[in-house]
């Protein structure tokens, strides 16, 4: 599967827009990315380990309403992480 980062998140993955990852779930994919880009975990997850609400998960073009680590993925899937934050 492919993990796609856009906007403000790109700097936390070294500006690699797309990571190709061998993963069967969203949790595995994010964990893989967090291992390679340690800053990413704090940005993506809150204190409880849940994905922050400001990050939207789009799976193959469809917004996932309540994404969690158990979200099943298949080979060839494209997951976009969209982060809409403003102000500061």
């Amino acid at each position: 599967m492919m993990l796609h980062f856009s906007g403000t998140l790109q700097r936390f993955v070294g500006f690699d827009r797309v990571l190709t990852i061998p993963a069967g779930t969203l949790g595995e994919a994010l964990h893989w990315a967090e291992e390679r880009h340690p800053q990413l975990r704090q940005v993506l997850r809150d204190n409880t380990g849940r994905l922050r609400r400001t990050h939207r998960v789009v799976l193959n073009g469809e917004l996932v309403s309540a994404p969690d680590d158990e979200l099943a993925l298949q080979e060839g899937d494209m997951v976009e992480i969209l982060t809409a934050v403003a102000g500061g």
């Binding site: 809150d46 204190n47 409880t48 849940r50 400001t54 102000g87």
Partner: peptide
């Protein structure tokens, strides 16, 4: 809110 204050702030904004 003790966690995900970023979400709280973005909701407010």
């Amino acid at each position: 809110t003790a966690t995900d204050g970023l979400g709280h702030a973005q909701r407010f904004l």
